[in-house]
Amino acid sequence: MNSLPYPIQVHDLTVSYQRKPVLYGVDLEIEAGSLVGVIGPNGAGKSTLIKTIMNMVRPNGGFVKILGKSPKAGTKHIGYVPQRESVDWEFPVTVMDVVLMGRYGHLGWFGRISKADKKMAHECLEKVDMLSYANRQIGNLSGGQQQRVFLARALAQESSIYLMDEPFVGVDAVTEKTIVSILKSMQQSGKTLVIVHHDLATAKNYFDHLLLLNMRKIAYGPTPKVFTEELLQKTYGGRLTVFSEMASQAAKQPEIETAKTIGE
């Protein structure tokens, strides 16, 4: 069992935007079949971590491996659900069109959408309770409905790994329940799921593993072990700690550039 590569392995990952560090030396090994919640304050680098795994952001140091492969070769095994505000909702596509996009990865360059693909898209829409909206334009949906459409697309991809960026933001209670039950059933069928989450109150019940992140990895492990007051304090109050650490480092090596970064 242990010889199988990790679905997601992150080693000493450092990412910065225009010299502003966002992630520092993150090490992470996620085992197959985990349902992982990524928790941390705003600006902690949660979305950046997901984007780096998806090969959308290039790291400054360290590496990401997906099923033992480089991100470029590995991303085709990942179903990615983007943040809702990053999608152009005015785009002229229907709900069905979006879900069918989940099948494109299985078609190759000149393949055509088959009846089986359409049937599968139907089933996925049924699972998220959105089949009656199949012919609606995506802009005419509520936030919760939009999120469910993207979940249906992810299901249609039949990936083994799923990354979701804040799927619970701006959705109604019914949608939240639907999404959670689907995530759990996906986990039971052996999928690996990594979900960026912002609500501490529900994190404990939704996920079996938690990653506490604030520029650095504060902790990663099974929820009961990681969800402790001390570690959460360190995650959410931890920004100050990171800054004072940086400040003392800068004091030792007084470089203008480092001082500038801190000044921002």
Binding site: N55, T75, P82, Y104
Partner: peptide, 13 residues
Amino acid sequence: LISSFDSTLAKSI
């Protein structure tokens, strides 16, 4: 269609 709507998905496949 897909590269216009969702370039991340397009790139990942």
